[in-house]
Amino acid sequence: MPAYDSMSLISDKQCIIIDIGYKYTKFGFSGESNPRCIIPTETISSDTGKYKIVFNYKDTDELYTNLVDFIHMLFFKYALVHPKEKRVVIVESLLSPSVIRNTLASVLFDHFEVTSIIFLPSHVISLYTLGINTGLVVDVGFQEAIVIPIYEGIPVLKAWQALPLGSKAVELALRDRIQNKIKLITEKGEEVMNSFCLFDTIVEDIKVKSCFVTTLERAKLLANGKIPKLQPPAFRYRIDGSTVIDIESIDRELPFETLFEQDNDQMSLSTMILDSILKCSIDMRKQLAENIVLLGGTVMTKGFKARLKEELLSLIKQPKYSDKLFINVFKFHNPPAKENYVAWLGGSICGATDMISMKSLTRDTYCEMNNNTIPDWCSLTNRSDSVIQKILQL
Rank of each mutant, 00 (worst) to 15 (best):
N328G: 15
T201W: 13
I391F: 12
A105F: 05
A337P: 13
D5V: 14
L295K: 05
C211P: 15
V244S: 10
E257A: 11
R236W: 00
E368G: 04
K338T: 01
P164Q: 02
P319C: 01
F109E: 01
A234E: 12
N194F: 08
R101S: 00
F70W: 01
S270H: 04
M369Q: 12
D354L: 09
L184H: 07
R101C: 00
A289I: 06
E92G: 01
A162M: 13
N382I: 06
A162L: 07
L394T: 07
D265M: 07
L74M: 14
C378N: 14
K317T: 15
T365L: 10
V192W: 00
N382Q: 13
H333G: 09
G241P: 03
G141M: 14
Y64Q: 03
A145W: 11
L221K: 13
T48Y: 14
L136P: 10
V99Q: 09
M7N: 15
T115F: 07
I247E: 03
M358E: 13
P255W: 08
H82N: 13
G347F: 09
I118C: 00
D354F: 11
D69K: 05
E368I: 11
S348V: 04
L294G: 02
H333K: 10
G49F: 15
G28K: 02
P2N: 13
N102S: 13
M369W: 08
T41L: 11
K77Q: 12
E253L: 14
L198S: 10
V137Y: 12
E190M: 00
I146G: 02
P83K: 02
I146R: 12
S348K: 04
T362K: 05
D275F: 14
T243K: 14
A219Y: 11
N334C: 06
I273Q: 01
T43K: 06
K168Q: 11
S281F: 15
L392W: 10
E191Y: 10
I154T: 09
K84N: 01
F332C: 04
R236D: 06
M369D: 07
E261H: 09
N224R: 13
S93C: 03
C211K: 13
N370Q: 07
L67H: 02
P40Q: 10
A162W: 07
S270F: 06
V89N: 00
I39T: 10
I273M: 01
Y366D: 04
E339R: 09
I250K: 07
L278N: 04
S6W: 14
W160D: 10
V299N: 03
G241I: 02
D275P: 09
T373E: 14
D323H: 09
G241Y: 10
N371L: 14
V107N: 08
